[in-house]
Design a protein around this nucleic acid. Structure first.
Lengths: 234, 234
DNA sequence: CGCGCGATTGATTCGGCTCAATAACTGTGG
DNA sequence: CCACAGTTATTGAGCCGAATCAATCGCGCG
């Protein structure tokens, strides 16, 4: 059903962006030998809540969302992933079942690294372990901040903050627009707002010239101004 | 200003509860030699936001809160810590300044482990590193869940959930009451609710016999019932 | 015994959600 | 290339949960 792809980690653009940037030649060789690369279509599921992790996914190209579904069936995006990002490492490292769903937002190529290799690499490469811990620790800081924001920031502030973060992590395209296309619904699921609130607030921000809307595309004329509006300290 | 205490890690009750449970004799000896133990009074500050971490704290006895303060000056409790829990490891491992404040909730004894030793131990003891990663990964899962809860659960549900979690992590005293004393304000800061809402909702829960209130003390007759009320799946 | 902080209770307000209806867009097949 | 169907986005109206504001109470402590 899937067609494996043949990719060489040595040439991987995403490698330098990932925690694996510290791998030595031999380890990289192992990684290259054992990882398996698959193409994914837009909207394809990578893993499902309550599945048991057998390894870790690494995004070679494309974008994906990791989300939970609450009891009313509403989606809540926990994290977005792009080139070089790992997916599913939390549950794998926590020895727990997946706590969320992962799904591509566009065409992707995603590599799977078997758990046995991950553990071997972590065991023999201290720097990799320390990198991984740093990575996890930063994730926690981000997650904590999100909780704080949910408790104290208004819809407008949260939306502004989300846009700033999207801008920072995904950059801009040739025209200066934030380089990720999200539906209003996905923006809502990312910020914890109702679709209607997202629509209205985006419109307000557009009218206040804090952003420029062009269909699904969003341009941010001034990051500092938007950060100010989001009450982000930075 | 502080009086150092002389404690031997070999005899430490909290040790078995902590990530250090895997240390070998020699490493434990190092830990014992380099850690410094201090007594803290109730309400004493352990570290402050924007301080730079030089190591990691480990609670020997007592309880502490880690909290952020938002721009309006309102506190938000990120995490509670008890015997055997580490404090400040996120920022240390992320190589960042502290993102929060840490303060004792009662009399405590807290040990400080210098960063150099932590790094040495993590480097030479793979199992410790893997434990630490597991610990961090579980923290993330918890933090993510908190965000989801904030977005979807009502005040009553969040409060019930917090009580269940408090019960699970702090256990009960001889009379069956949850073994931690928090002011209404702290409960509010923990759940993201206004004090008045906490008061009213606790009263409601008491009237509905889902909890039994006795001043600051809280008894939970049936965890399953309360979990149900909190819409927790378990 | 009085002081002060924490807890309680009531009244009011309001941000953002829900519901409902319509419009615009996307993709698909004829 | 166009018509149609199914999404996705937009706009309006009304509602509701929880925050805020304003007293008052009462416990703990000197």
């Amino acid at each position: 059903m899937f067609n494996k792809l043949v990719l060489n980690c040595i040439n991987c653009q995403a490698l330098a962006l990932s925690v694996f940037c510290t791998l030595k030649d031999e380890e990289l060789h192992d990684l290259n030998k054992e990882k398996v690369s698959y193409p994914y279509k837009k909207g394809q599921v990578i893993f499902t809540e309550s599945d048991r992790p057998n390894g870790i996914y690494c995004v070679h190209s494309g974008k994906a969302k990791i989300y939970k579904v609450n009891s009313e069936g509403k989606e809540q995006i926990v994290r977005l992933a792009k080139d070089g990002d790992l997916i599913g490492y939390r549950s794998f490292l926590a020895h727990e079942e997946y706590q969320a769903f992962a799904e591509t937002l566009e065409e992707c190529v995603i590599c799977f690294i078997p758990g046995s290799l991950i553990l071997k690499l972590l065991s023999q490469n201290i720097q990799l372990s320390l990198n991984m811990m740093e990575h996890l620790a930063k994730d926690i800081i981000t997650a904590d901040q999100k909780s704080v924001d949910l408790q104290t920031k208004t819809a407008r502030e949260r939306l502004c903050e989300a846009l700033v973060i999207l801008h920072k992590s995904f950059g801009t395209d040739a025209d200066g627009y934030v380089d990720i296309r999200l539906s209003r619904e996905n923006i809502g699921n990312l910020t914890g707002l109702a679709i209607e609130t997202v629509v209205r607030t985006l419109k307000d921000l557009d009218e206040d010239e804090l952003i420029r809307l062009n269909k699904k595309r969003i341009l941010i004329p001034s990051i500092p101004l938007l950060m100010d509006e989001a009450r982000m300290i930075d």
